[in-house]
Design a protein around this nucleic acid. Structure first.
Lengths: 136, 136
DNA sequence: AGTGGTGGTCTCAAAAAGAGACCAGCACTA
DNA sequence: TAGTGCTGGTCTCTTTTTGAGACCACCACT
């Protein structure tokens, strides 16, 4: 608990550091988090954490992602070093995406948040309902 | 490690459940995570985890957020039950935002990811540089 | 010759985010 | 008493991001 509080403080220091610095790249935490808070990043990371997938497999696994966003999100995840892209020279060339060690390490941290979301979605849903009721 | 693997699987099951169900509200994890992956949600949560802040204080603390997005992000966080909004009838009415117990609990989980980001931003930065070099 | 599966790109429309003007109310100052 | 500034916002406009979907070359199989 104590170390967690310390972490919390140091985190905010980092955030503050960026506000002083000016450029967004000056805040490491924001810089990294930005790459993860895309609409599809965590979902695709979770999928690839289970096993490597091909492009078309991911598209079928997540039907409500557009092909365009799938391409781009995978590109971004690859650029940040979370995902590895391998092309196999099969008859129609197939492309496999998998998590790198860095990606796996990141997903371990992300897992806590995903777990929290699963455990507390009722509370959040209730909060929304209650809030909407007062705003009616 | 074992339990983490199980969690990972169950997580993906949840994601899959949503792909079958159809509606986005059918996937609790996505539903909750969506509210958190806004550009400013984690930053404001981190700020409020440190201490309660007034509207203007937050605006000064995070200078590159627009007033419009500050209003809206706080509204969303309040709606999801993470943030409490209190109006004090001072001469010019002042408004204080603070984390609820739910918000604090969520931030505890988010902390792991923020900590990871702080520890690994070098690796991510290096990955980006290396990737951009190959794509030149 | 037509059909389908591979992994994409391109274009255009819709949604979200950013920039900045504007507002009422009150305090303090000149 | 008229200006100035601070409070916490809203409204409008522009730019960026996302979504929907057409299109593409290549090859296998029928």
């Amino acid at each position: 608990m104590d170390s967690r509080t310390v972490n919390l403080r140091s985190k905010l220091e980092v955030y503050k550091a960026m506000t002083d610095g000016g450029s967004i790249a000056d805040c490491p935490v924001r810089d990294v988090i930005q790459g993860l808070n895309g609409k599809w990043s965590s979902l695709l990371t979770a999928a690839l954490a289970e096993q490597p997938y091909r492009f078309g497999e991911l598209r079928r696994l997540v039907p409500d992602i557009s092909q365009r966003m799938l391409t781009q999100t995978l590109y971004d995840l690859q650029r940040d070093g979370y995902v590895r892209r391998e092309v196999f020279p099969t008859k129609p060339p197939s492309v496999e995406y998998s998590l790198t060690d860095l990606g796996r390490s990141m997903f371990d941290a992300l897992q806590y948040l995903l777990q929290w979301a699963e455990n507390n979605h009722d509370a959040v849903r209730d909060a929304r309902t209650a809030f909407d009721a007062t705003q009616a």
